[in-house]
Design a protein around this nucleic acid. Sequence first.
DNA 1: AGCCGGCTGTACGATACCGTACGCATCCGA
DNA 2: TCGGATGCGTACGGTATCGTACAGCCGGCT
Lengths: 256, 256
Amino acid sequence: MSPRMGLTESANLVPPEGSGSRPPDPLGNRLLAALSDATRARVLPAMSVVALERQQHTNIYDTPMRNVDFPIDAIMSVVATLATGATCEVAAVGREGFVEVDAALAARIAHRTSFCQIPGHVARMPIDAFEAELESNTEFETLMLRAVRARAFMTEQLATCNLKHALVERFARWLLMTRDRLGRREFNVTHEFLAMMLGARRAGVSQAAATLQTAGCIAYRRGVVMIFDDAALTARSCECYGAQREAIEICFRKDN
Amino acid sequence: MSPRMGLTESANLVPPEGSGSRPPDPLGNRLLAALSDATRARVLPAMSVVALERQQHTNIYDTPMRNVDFPIDAIMSVVATLATGATCEVAAVGREGFVEVDAALAARIAHRTSFCQIPGHVARMPIDAFEAELESNTEFETLMLRAVRARAFMTEQLATCNLKHALVERFARWLLMTRDRLGRREFNVTHEFLAMMLGARRAGVSQAAATLQTAGCIAYRRGVVMIFDDAALTARSCECYGAQREAIEICFRKDN
DNA sequence: AGCCGGCTGTACGATACCGTACGCATCCGA
DNA sequence: TCGGATGCGTACGGTATCGTACAGCCGGCT
């Protein structure tokens, strides 16, 4: 039994990923958009927009960081590698943040591995330019530090979430965060890949997905997930969704 | 069956906590000890040594931070509060670090609650003095940022540990980290309190403790745990112990 | 049109932990 | 010396995953 819940097979839910449309504006990243015109005029010329494929790695732990990436319409994943070789996500980064937070803390070596989770584009800045701007521009520094704090908060929340909340709840949270980051309701993701992100079995994800689909929250087919009922999905997610969302909002609030 | 494993009842394993001995040297904190003489001469006069009782709170989330605490022979705990009111540890801080990492990232509001886990002393600096020193002293800033990175790394590791590792392993890790932070093998802790730190039931901790005691790794009685066999305990802990330990060492290495 | 590879449905027992509960040991203060 | 309070041992059924396995289905390629 696999009710298709209104998903026709021919529906082209997601635009072709490598479609040859022009690269998006760096200002799609909320941090870059929050900069003053003056700072933007200094920063943007140092950046280039880069398209990333799924699973494309941008940092390997214990190797030098070369760039600082500000996702635009991509989602990046930062993972810890266990002794078994298994990986476990410690942060996801979309247009609300930047990947190499340690670079804002004077680090030059990546202490985690990061790769592209949802294909798209990032605005990329060489780490030297990033550091130079941090040093010389208080506005830039302040904003970056806020983003670092938001990231720290989200990782802390993840630690408690991983300990306390059931797989379905975490799955729902993941879907909602991804929707917020991408600004759309459908993504190309396989259960296999989701299992990797959520630190669970593929079979476990399939079951959680079935639960949410039966409840009418989502619909999915081969490699595509679509959010159907936002409110219902939110109700089935854990409070960590709201907490992370709020952390992001605080990051972009002036009075903080 | 509760084999006492060489613990005689009269043995005074742990010195009385509130014993009237003189307060310890702030340089018991490794960060403060790592500062140059010149910087220390500026920083130490602004600090005071404060004794903390178990469960004494030093920060409440969403309230202003007043001080920055560098543990000397205390261990502090930073926790997230869930909607149910339950708390979940997101970081433990001993003499290798300082509690209010966000203060080094220009924050003035605590975003988490923190309290004293193992009673002892902290070297306390008013947050204004801390910020002033950060601004004016590159050496100080560099060291603090390294400590922030170590803390971020440890929280990330905790996120994966909470997801992937069994309670006994996490318990063993906790014991080893605590030993390292305190420089002794016995601590006053109840199973109840440990359960709170590990995000588990009291009964679950009792069982894990029994397992480790039967294996000869530890010995315990009412409110006291003692590490017996370091190697055996390490073998039963997860890799996260080593990872956290290494993060601390890197923090204190010059070439980074 | 047909095939093959990747993705998903589903099952099995095993395990780790939960929530709860109750009894007993130990310690402390009256 | 004797409660009372605190801390621990242990048990019960219940549940959420795990690891593994296999079969069915879809979709793209030849």
